[in-house]
Write a protein that binds this DNA or RNA. Sequence first.
RNA 1: GGUCGAUUCGUCUAGGGGUUAGGACGCAUCCCUUUCACGGAUGAAACACGGGUUCGAUUCCCGUAUCGACUACCA
Length: 512
Amino acid sequence: MNREVRVRFAPSPTGALHIGGVRTALYNYLFARKNKGRFLLRIEDTDQTRFVPGAEEYIKEALDWLGIAPDESPWNPGSVGPYRQSERKPMYMQYAMDLVEKGHAYYAFDTSEELEAMRQRLTAARVVSPQYNSITRTQMKNSLTLPEDEVKARLESGEPYVIRVKIPRKEEVRLNDLIRGWVMVHSSTLDDKVLMKSDGMPTYHLANIVDDHLMGITHVIRGEEWLPSAPLHVLLYRYFGWEDTMPQFAHLPLLLKPDGNGKLSKRDADKHGFPVFPMDWIDPTSGDTAMGFREQGYLPDAFLNFLAFLGWNPGDHRELFSLEELIDAFSVERIGKSGTKFDINKAKWYNEQYLRAKSDEELAQYLMDDLQLEGIQIEFSKATQIVQVMKERATFPSDLWKEGKFMLVAPDSFDEAVLAKRWNNDALAVLGTYKEKLVDFPGELNPESAKSLLEAAAEDNGIKLGKVMQAVRLAVTGVGAGPDLMAVFSILGKDELVKRLDYALNNLKVNI
RNA sequence: GGUCGAUUCGUCUAGGGGUUAGGACGCAUCCCUUUCACGGAUGAAACACGGGUUCGAUUCCCGUAUCGACUACCA
């Protein structure tokens, strides 16, 4: 049977979307596009206690920013909605009941205290993993142990209950993961997971299977943390009688912290000074802001390219891929199996590549926008000139302003080390002459004239230009390194240049 | 502890019974250059360990170690 490919990204709105989640969304998106299928987004908000306001909007905005918006979602529904599990609440109970009727699930009335007592008893008896399973359920309060009329009475009296799946005692459960191959688990290691909670909401396991089935999902691409529960999911498909349309599973390797081991967390990112969230996230309870890649200056295409290569590669040596090229090259077979450590340097490198590929005009607009925030107005043509000398040395668009500031604002400080080493009488002499030549120079300064004038000034003093070059730079820019000086002079213009030389000549003391 | 999974340069990875084990980021050196950066060139740097199978294993098999995920009425 050849069904239309349908995949889904199913985040919980419990906070900002983590970068691992973004990668999962990206792979789902790529897979859908590659296979001419559809990419859905479903909000898994069955845990009302963990709901965080704004989280859903954040997810939407992040995917929009990256250009990987879903084809169907709560805010753009298709025909299989609703796309929020909380809104699907009424439909789950019948499926749970169906399982009870088929003998694959049962009611359980145990209180959390009783469950705790059971675990303690088991632990004391040195049972390796205390869990509600085929053995222990015989000692608990459920519809398998209680007389039928008592179960009925409890149900009718409104006593809280959950519905648990009845895991068989001895059965080999196998699934063929697209990334990992055959994974086999014995049912004796599984427990009778809760399917319906006492608040009437389904747990992830139930809702997930029911929704994926109802939404026609063909491939489940999700994080490796779900691998241990995948056998349960396989069992559920079987119990519902949906095995023939069961989606194929692909469990993605985890994103690890850069040093040591373990899953990448916000804490680690903070420690290293880089984000783990696509965009800034303001925690609604603490009011703290967690930084995002977008606000740090990462370009969406660069970020996507970087993300795609965290656990996947095209099999050749190409590394720069547009979204379209990623779609074309993508395949689940080429997703790796092992966890991936996060290296922010690579992300920066990607950003530099994409930044340099941008047109001067586009970058000039970035610069103009930054300048506006600083209350500085310049001509677009001037912004373009600045971009031309700065783009090869910028990692983020904001560097254009931060690193190129000296082209718009006179330096208010001068590098002490360079001053001590290079600011001498030779420099003073050349700069004095240069200033006079500039004042006498008719017309606009360009890099060539700026240079010939400076060369002439050096020659007049019988001094090799190379010897005073750094001092010249220091006088005008305040620092000892930067882009081509003559281009900078040309951008500055004659008047500003003379002004700065004047200031330096009069205020910088010669250290002997 | 149990279950499942993973293991190639510091990092992301290619590869796969016989290879000088390839590329990229980062790092170092050199070239270019008035400086820095870009660019170019070069270099250091890896098959976790132990058994087996084999003429031959980094590659296949089995163990061990290490790391990770999971082990909730959270997803």
